[in-house]
Deep mutational scan, measured.
Amino acid sequence: PVYLSVKADNSMFIGNDPVTDETMITALNALTEGKKDTTIFFRADKTVDYETLMKVMDTLHQAGYLKIGLVG
């Protein structure tokens, strides 16, 4: 499974590897070998604001990742 996490300080990680807004999709493409039907499990600290969550989800959708599971 692929886990994308947003921490309380808005830092992002794919698994244990830090990513930025600019590198997130490139890292996901490498990890999933470009398979856009891969489910991305998205988790965020409860203090992360809604705007940040939606920005990340919008970026995922624009890149073609449509299977996003929200996890606690």
Rank of each mutant, 00 (worst) to 15 (best):
residue 4 L to Q: 01
residue 40 I to L: 04
residue 71 V to T: 08
residue 46 K to D: 13
residue 33 E to M: 13
residue 56 V to D: 00
residue 72 G to V: 13
residue 47 T to K: 10
residue 19 V to G: 01
residue 30 A to W: 06
residue 3 Y to G: 02
residue 17 D to L: 14
residue 72 G to A: 11
residue 10 N to H: 12
residue 60 L to T: 01
residue 23 T to Q: 08
residue 40 I to D: 00
residue 10 N to D: 06
residue 63 A to N: 11
residue 45 D to Q: 03
residue 2 V to A: 03
residue 68 I to F: 04
residue 24 M to C: 03
residue 51 E to H: 12
residue 25 I to N: 02
residue 60 L to M: 04
residue 68 I to N: 02
residue 39 T to I: 15
residue 9 D to V: 06
residue 38 T to C: 08
residue 16 N to A: 11
residue 11 S to P: 01
residue 57 M to I: 14
residue 22 E to F: 07
residue 21 D to P: 15
residue 16 N to W: 06
residue 37 D to C: 08
residue 33 E to C: 11
residue 6 V to L: 12
residue 38 T to H: 06
residue 30 A to K: 13
residue 58 D to V: 11
residue 54 M to E: 07
residue 17 D to K: 13
residue 66 L to E: 09
residue 17 D to R: 11
residue 13 F to V: 05
residue 2 V to N: 01
residue 14 I to F: 07
residue 28 L to W: 01
residue 8 A to N: 06
residue 11 S to I: 10
residue 46 K to E: 14
residue 19 V to N: 01
residue 38 T to E: 05
residue 64 G to M: 02
residue 31 L to R: 09
residue 64 G to T: 00
residue 28 L to T: 01
residue 53 L to T: 05
residue 41 F to E: 10
residue 71 V to Y: 07
residue 52 T to E: 04
residue 27 A to W: 10
residue 60 L to S: 00
residue 51 E to A: 13
residue 26 T to P: 13
residue 31 L to K: 10
residue 67 K to E: 07
residue 19 V to W: 02
residue 14 I to A: 03
residue 41 F to L: 14
residue 68 I to L: 06
residue 70 L to K: 04
residue 6 V to N: 01
residue 64 G to V: 00
residue 41 F to S: 04
residue 56 V to Q: 02
residue 7 K to V: 06
residue 7 K to C: 14
residue 15 G to M: 08
residue 37 D to A: 07
residue 31 L to Y: 09
residue 32 T to C: 07
residue 9 D to I: 04
residue 21 D to Q: 15
residue 55 K to S: 07
residue 35 K to F: 07
residue 54 M to R: 14
residue 65 Y to A: 01
residue 62 Q to V: 07
residue 48 V to M: 05
residue 53 L to S: 03
residue 18 P to N: 05
residue 46 K to L: 10
residue 21 D to W: 15
residue 47 T to V: 08
residue 48 V to Y: 03
residue 70 L to G: 07
residue 41 F to Q: 06
residue 69 G to Y: 15
residue 61 H to I: 13
residue 21 D to M: 15
residue 41 F to I: 14
residue 59 T to W: 09
residue 58 D to K: 14
residue 62 Q to G: 10
residue 62 Q to D: 10
residue 23 T to W: 03
residue 37 D to W: 06
residue 15 G to W: 03
residue 67 K to Q: 10
residue 71 V to L: 13
residue 45 D to F: 03
residue 62 Q to A: 14
residue 21 D to H: 15
residue 29 N to C: 05
residue 52 T to K: 10
residue 5 S to P: 01
residue 61 H to P: 00
residue 49 D to H: 10
residue 51 E to C: 13
residue 41 F to P: 01
residue 40 I to S: 00
residue 2 V to G: 01
residue 3 Y to L: 08
residue 67 K to T: 12
residue 33 E to H: 14
residue 56 V to P: 00
residue 67 K to G: 04
residue 65 Y to W: 05
residue 35 K to W: 08
residue 44 A to R: 03
residue 37 D to Y: 06
residue 9 D to R: 06
residue 67 K to I: 13
residue 40 I to M: 02
residue 4 L to Y: 01
residue 52 T to Q: 09
residue 5 S to G: 03
residue 61 H to W: 11
residue 61 H to C: 09
residue 23 T to I: 05
residue 29 N to S: 06
residue 23 T to L: 06
residue 9 D to S: 07
residue 72 G to N: 11
residue 52 T to S: 07
residue 44 A to E: 02
residue 44 A to I: 13
residue 34 G to T: 04
residue 69 G to T: 15
